[in-house]
Design a protein around this nucleic acid. Sequence first.
DNA 1: TATATAGAGGACAAATTTATCTTTTAATAA
DNA 2: TTATTAAAAGATAAATTTGTCCTCTATATA
Lengths: 142, 142
Amino acid sequence: MLLSKSCEYAIRAAVYVAYTSNLGKRAGIIEIAEAIGSPMHFTGKILQALSRKQVLSSAKGPNGGFYIDDRHSVFLIDIVRAIDGDELFTACVMGLKSCSDAGPCPLHDQIKPLKSQLLAEFSRKSLNEMVKEYEQNRYFLK
Amino acid sequence: MLLSKSCEYAIRAAVYVAYTSNLGKRAGIIEIAEAIGSPMHFTGKILQALSRKQVLSSAKGPNGGFYIDDRHSVFLIDIVRAIDGDELFTACVMGLKSCSDAGPCPLHDQIKPLKSQLLAEFSRKSLNEMVKEYEQNRYFLK
DNA sequence: TATATAGAGGACAAATTTATCTTTTAATAA
DNA sequence: TTATTAAAAGATAAATTTGTCCTCTATATA
């Protein structure tokens, strides 16, 4: 797996939250979990984490829920970093502590560009872009 | 993490086994675990799995251990498939069941070529190639 | 045949990830 | 102020991955 299950849920939840935010509404965890097909409470925890990391916002009480302040744009990499960190882009494929550009493992030179590309894709993909496609019914979230 | 810890150990152990096989010797789990810096018994389990999947061979008793029949060449992909399966190359990054070429997730088109490249690299990298570099002291296994 | 060697296999345990449930806190609105 | 709503937080549990230990089986060799 490229990303942890938590991170997959995080991305899908964030897309849904961005989607409802565009409609001027806040999304509650019940609604979100239903929309993306994930365990409700667990999804709540993940959204709390995203909220703490300022990827999105939350409000308690009536009409509360999760939302995204549309003044700051979120990129996929923000979500991935918040949940999985960035070892995906930095750690050695073979798990070697001694692996580095200077003393590379036998896969280093071939894998490095792939990791860079992955990082680049995650960095340029905005949540807004993903929401647009979702609004066009181009895909589901489960 | 791209690969599971088990798979990382598997690759490193396989390189070491191929290395000792080239020297006409068999490697025992104590020696292997020491060489690659991994938990001994756990490494034994992993090697058993590789043996069952015919990636390498084993022999019991005195002078026994793990070895690789040099008539069949092993590629990295064989090890990865044996331990982690191939969901790394096939599963959706966002964890969507509904994701496919026909109904792609918003990352599908960008990630697909990366997964193909990863698969290609793993498919063309032979254990022998990795051993050669190891023999030249180009890297360590821990 | 007896003994020592070394992997195979099973049972078990620790650690991590994923998932659930309950209580607390904050906010809204009546 | 009170009741209600919904996230935050904490405790607990299930599942998976990682790691350990002990016994069994096969093999070599004396």
